[in-house]
């Protein structure tokens, strides 16, 4: 098997995650889909690291994880505070930006 298949898998997971962001309304699920996309990217990085024989790709994946952790913390806090004030976790309910 050619390890390039990992890349195809990463692409597939990324696309599934993106579509999930588009079709789900629950903010938490949307957030999970974002995490899925990040993980797909990480897989691609790790595969590239193996492909090129150096560890920089893994470093980037590592940083991605750290940043994702920070993002999850803040994002979930935002979701919680939005839920508190609006009693809803639906992204469609927060549509005050329209005219």
């Amino acid at each position: 098997m050619n390890p390039v298949n990992y890349l195809y898998l990463a692409a597939l997971l990324f696309t599934i995650g993106a579509v999930g962001v588009l079709i789900r309304r629950n903010a938490i699920v949307v957030f999970m889909c974002v995490e899925l996309m990040l993980n797909a990217c990480n897989l691609a990085f790790v595969t590239f690291s193996r492909m090129h024989g150096n560890l920089d790709g893994q470093i980037i994946a590592f940083f991605t994880m750290v940043v994702a952790a920070a993002e999850v913390v803040v994002g979930l806090a935002i979701i919680v505070s939005v839920f508190r004030s609006r009693h809803s976790a639906s992204v469609d309910d927060a549509s005050l930006m329209k005219l």
Partner: peptide, 15 residues
């Protein structure tokens, strides 16, 4: 598991 398979042992555990 895939990370481990790709030789990224540290990342696999961290994941």
């Amino acid at each position: 598991v895939f990370y481990l398979a790709n030789g990224a042992y540290f990342l696999g555990i961290v994941q």
